[in-house]
């Protein structure tokens, strides 16, 4: 089963996305900040990461860099909001494979994921 790590500081967002994904047969794990995400990535080696950008402790961009440093083939999709253009660009340059803008619909997330995990 495809394992997906959801990283967002808002519990509501994590729950919302988890529900979307587990309904589609994905195995979902969650982290509430970047630092925790890096740790969980190492412990669980998920197939894909959905990564929020603005978070306490460690932001998504920094976490992305750590994860890519640990695993150069890591597949990370950034979850972004309006007004974060330059961060998104930086994320893509740092190896993020895609980004999705909040608020997002079910289909958009699933499509982005399916593109990356065959």
């Amino acid at each position: 089963m495809t394992k997906i790590l959801i990283v967002d500081d808002a519990e509501f967002l994590r729950v919302r996305i988890s529900k979307m994904l587990s309904g589609d047969g994905f195995d979902v794990i969650q982290a509430e900040n970047g630092a925790r995400a890096v740790e969980m990535y190492k412990e669980n080696s998920p197939d894909l990461v959905l990564m929020d950008i603005t978070m306490p402790e460690m932001d998504g961009l920094t976490a992305l860099k750590h994860i890519r440093g640990y695993d150069a083939s890591a597949k990370v999709i950034m979850l972004t909001a309006l007004g974060q253009e330059s961060v998104v660009l930086e994320a893509i340059k740092s190896g993020a494979r895609d980004f999705i803008v909040k608020p997002f619909e079910h289909e958009r997330v699933i499509n982005a994921i399916r593109k990356l995990v065959a």
Binding site: D9, A10, F12, L13, R16, T54, M55, P56, A81, L82, G83, K102, P103
Partner: peptide, 29 residues
């Protein structure tokens, strides 16, 4: 911290389709 709070609220409001809440949080953010 305060910026993050506004930012997160905006994200949450957006996810439930609360447009007026998004407008206010966006201005605040």
């Amino acid at each position: 911290t305060v910026f993050r709070a506004a930012h997160t609220l905006k994200g949450m409001a957006g996810m439930i389709g609360h447009k007026r809440m998004v407008s206010v949080t966006h201005a605040l953010e």
